[in-house]
Amino acid sequence: MKLIEPDEMEDFQAILQARHLAADDFELHQVDTTDPKTDEIFGLTGFVTVSRKSNGHKKQYPIGDGSSWVTEFERDLQRGAFAG
């Protein structure tokens, strides 16, 4: 199941575009850690690893219901976490 919502992807792309960063230089890999065995209705959980291909920098963020990974990614960009 995809945990990254379409609006989150749009926000992610907009952040890259605003900073003049090529979208194809970044790769997202998401992992769903939601427990499929439970009968309870819990929010979806997982994590996404954002990788910058040109320099190999990676950062992992929690995703799922109520997450703010896009905001955290933007903050990390501002702090230089993905800088060359």
Rank of each mutant, 00 (worst) to 15 (best):
E74H: 14
G64C: 07
G84C: 09
A81S: 12
R75Y: 06
E5H: 10
Q78S: 11
F73C: 03
I41D: 08
E10I: 09
F47M: 12
K37F: 13
R19S: 09
R75H: 10
F26T: 03
H57F: 15
S51W: 00
Q13L: 10
E72K: 10
L77G: 05
T49A: 12
D7N: 12
Y61G: 13
L28C: 01
K2C: 00
Y61Q: 11
T49E: 14
S51D: 10
R79T: 06
E40C: 08
G80M: 04
K37H: 13
E10G: 09
Q60C: 14
D25W: 00
A81W: 02
E74I: 03
S51I: 09
D76V: 02
F26K: 03
R19L: 09
D32M: 02
E10M: 08
K53L: 15
D24R: 04
D65A: 14
G56N: 12
N55T: 13
K2R: 12
E40W: 11
D65L: 14
L77A: 04
V50F: 05
E8T: 05
W69P: 11
F82R: 04
S67R: 00
K37C: 08
D25T: 07
E74L: 05
D24Q: 07
F42H: 15
Q60G: 10
H29G: 07
F82Y: 03
K59N: 12
D39F: 14
S54Y: 04
G84D: 14
S51V: 07
D39T: 12
A23H: 03
M9I: 07
T45A: 11
L77I: 06
A23E: 12
L3M: 02
L77P: 06
A14Q: 00
A14W: 00
G66V: 09
S68E: 15
V50D: 08
D39V: 05
L16D: 02
G46C: 03
F73A: 00
